[in-house]
Design a protein around this nucleic acid. Sequence first.
DNA 1: AACAAAAAGCATACCCGGTTCAGATCCGAA
DNA 2: TTCGGATCTGAACCGGGTATGCTTTTTGTT
Lengths: 229, 229
Amino acid sequence: MLFVVMAGLRERKKEQTRRRIAEVALRLFAERGFDAVTVNEIAEAAGVAKVTLFSYFPSKDCLVLDGVKDDMARIVAGRGPGVTPLAALRAHYRALVAADTEELDVEALMTRVRVISASPALLAGVQQAYAEEREELAAALAAARDPDGTAQAPETTARAPERPARCPDLAARVMAAQITATVTTLQETFFARLAAGTPLAEAGRALAEDVELAFDLLEHGHDTERGTS
Amino acid sequence: MLFVVMAGLRERKKEQTRRRIAEVALRLFAERGFDAVTVNEIAEAAGVAKVTLFSYFPSKDCLVLDGVKDDMARIVAGRGPGVTPLAALRAHYRALVAADTEELDVEALMTRVRVISASPALLAGVQQAYAEEREELAAALAAARDPDGTAQAPETTARAPERPARCPDLAARVMAAQITATVTTLQETFFARLAAGTPLAEAGRALAEDVELAFDLLEHGHDTERGTS
DNA sequence: AACAAAAAGCATACCCGGTTCAGATCCGAA
DNA sequence: TTCGGATCTGAACCGGGTATGCTTTTTGTT
């Protein structure tokens, strides 16, 4: 009963098998397209049974869309004192854009981007991931403006029938929706540029500009924007 | 070759069959849940073959999610001169909220809302519809600030290498994303209230408030919002 | 070293949404 | 009445995903 970190031969093999499945799948998808490859083929090519594959990945989508969600909720929850959620997010994405891209496996990333953007099913899956992230962010924002859940103390405000249970904080949900919509649009634009052949460095530079533009829109609103004519 | 509206016995039967299928499906879903009803059952209960059902509705989802998308792009495209897209949308939703709800089949609507909000699959479908609408709105917004495609006239601004080929108009896409995110959040909140048992009139009143709050956030940004502490 | 429990993998059969295909049926016009 | 095209239909099929019951491997213990 030792509390060693225990690389455990078992868990190492699991990790390794998982990686092998994902790599094989990505290669096949890149060759022939997501919809033209069956999970049976993937399982066979990875030397594993179909049921085993599904024990590693809950669905075919997840073979590709495994780590697409970045965790905005955590960034909001873990921000410093006195800094607004929006400022924390802006700082985070600024830093992310400025980070060195040397350590990334750019080739694999681009392959993933190409595979995803070529498949309606996967694009739908991405939208789904975005929606999930939006809900998490909404919860984090609600918690941010309500430090310790006053939600379970309705007696103190029971005498306020004019504001009947402001549901789960509409303002927080709208903010979350606008923020995730903005960030995901930035991501999509960035990946679209990459998929279209723009070199990474240039796409990164463009992204840096876009981050500022997008967060300015979030902070200051659209009232300075011209419609037309 | 008459251009009469042509009630045509045939087309009438088609319409009628379509309605019957949708009604039967909704009833079964309401009774036992979306996932617990198979399309075979629906087809049998509606007195029709499975393949016929799929000739009317392209997927099981569509039996419920048929007219969920309202057409923001059309509202933007058809707005009066001198009015911004955002103002047009705000006016539209104000009017929609203020409209009399007498003519609606409230009972059927509520059933639909309950069925949808009880099924993850259908909720995902709703997200998908939102995503589609967002893309349409993005195109409409881009067209709005670029009345007749100036895309093929870069000569006038050719001396501005600092802004290289602003891709497919990022600002329009961010605006579209923020606007659809806002409106869909309003819809979700409204339906959540209804599903939770709030009477229609009261939910309508709350929605009217929410519309103003949400569009204010869109117009003026989040910079006046407090984070916490 | 031997062993039993737990964990992982496997083959198979099954369910369900969705499609394909070759007819059967029905409507509407000539 | 008859013909052509649209519509409907049963039945087989495909692919993603699950349930079941069994073998193999890892691991901690005696």
